[in-house]
C-alpha cells in the first residue's frame, strides 16, 4: 500500500520543486531529486522521524544547498521567456490584424518589450522568494497579485505616455500587416513545435478568435464583450484542465 506523506512534507517537496524550477534548473534533475527526497521522507515518517531531522531547521538553507549542486538550464529558461513574450506579442498582433491594419508607435513597441521582460523577471524572482519562505497562503496571493498588477500599471502608464509623447509611428499597410501576421504565425508554430506544447496556439486562438467572430454577428457590443470573454477564459480553463489530466495519465 502507498504511504501517504504528511502535509508538511508534501508542502516542502512542492516548495522545493518550485524553488528549483524558478532557479532555472533542469526539470529532469528536479524530478529526480524530488522523487529521491520523497522516498526518503516516506521511510523517515514511517519510522516516526520529524521532517526537521531530514532537512534541518531551515528549509530555505537546505533548498539552497541542493540548488547549488545543480546546473542551471538556460535553454529551458529561454524557452519559457520566449513563450511568454511571444504569447503577449502574438496576441496583440493577431487581435489588431483582425481589427484592421497594424500601426504602432515606437514607444508602444519598445514599451511592450520592456514590460514583458520586467514581468517575466519579476515572476521568476517572486516564485523563488515565495517557495523559500514559509508564507501563509494569503501572503503568497498578495505577492503574486502585486506582481500581476505591475504590468497592468505599466501598460496603463505606457498608454498615457503614448498619448502625450509623440514617437515615430510605424504604419503597416495591408500587405505589411499580412506579412507581420504571417511571420508571427510562423514563430508561434515554430515555438510550439520546438517546445512540444500547444499551449501558445490554444491560448492565442482562444483570446483572439471568439472576439473576432462575434464582431461579425449582429449581437450588440455588450453581449459580444461578455460572450467573448466567457468563451476565451472558459476555453482556456477547459484547455488547461484537459491538458493537466492528460499529463497525469502519462
Amino acid at each position: 500500500m502507498q504511504y501517504e506523506l504528511s502535509n508538511k512534507s508534501k508542502r516542502f517537496l512542492e516548495d522545493l520543486r518550485v524553488y528549483l524550477f524558478s532557479s532555472g534548473k533542469k526539470s529532469e534533475e528536479i524530478d529526480e531529486i524530488v522523487e529521491e527526497l520523497e522516498s526518503h521522507l516516506v521511510e523517515a515518517e514511517q519510522h516516526g522521524k520529524p521532517i526537521e531531522k531530514i532537512i534541518g531547521k531551515s528549509p530555505k538553507d537546505y533548498m539552497e544547498t541542493v540548488a547549488d549542486e545543480m546546473a542551471i538550464d538556460f535553454r529551458t529558461w529561454f524557452k519559457y521567456i520566449l513563450i511568454i513574450i511571444f504569447g503577449a506579442f502574438s496576441f496583440t498582433i493577431f487581435r489588431d490584424v483582425l481589427a484592421g491594419n497594424l500601426s504602432y508607435s515606437l514607444l508602444e513597441i519598445v514599451g511592450h518589450l520592456a514590460i514583458t521582460l520586467i514581468f517575466t523577471f519579476l515572476t521568476f524572482i517572486a516564485f523563488k522568494y515565495i517557495s523559500s519562505n514559509n508564507f501563509s497562503n494569503t501572503v503568497q496571493l498578495v505577492i503574486l497579485y502585486l506582481i500581476g498588477m505591475i504590468p497592468l500599471g505599466l501598460f496603463i502608464g505606457m498608454y498615457f505616455l503614448n498619448e502625450s509623447i509623440r514617437t515615430p509611428v510605424i504604419q503597416f499597410g495591408e500587405t505589411g500587416s499580412m506579412i507581420v501576421a504571417a511571420i508571427t504565425l510562423l514563430f508561434v508554430l515554430a515555438i510550439s513545435i520546438w517546445t512540444k506544447t500547444g499551449i501558445l496556439i490554444a491560448i492565442v486562438t482562444l483570446l483572439t478568435l471568439p472576439e473576432y467572430l462575434l464582431s461579425k454577428t449582429t449581437l450588440n457590443l455588450e453581449t459580444q464583450l461578455i460572450l467573448s470573454s466567457v468563451i476565451s477564459f472558459g476555453g482556456i480553463g477547459i484547455y488547461l484542465f484537459i491538458s493537466s489530466q492528460l499529463n497525469k495519465d502519462k
Partner: peptide, 30 residues
C-alpha cells in the same frame, strides 16, 4: 540532518565517484 547526504551524493555523481540506478520498491516511490 539526513538530507545533507543528497547534495553530497549529487556532487559525487557529477565528479563520477558514484553512479546510480533507479529501482522499484514495494512501498512508495522508486
Amino acid at each position: 540532518s539526513e538530507g545533507t547526504i543528497y547534495p553530497l551524493l549529487m556532487r559525487m555523481q557529477k565528479e563520477e565517484l558514484v553512479t546510480s540506478t533507479l529501482k522499484k520498491s514495494t512501498a512508495g516511490p522508486r
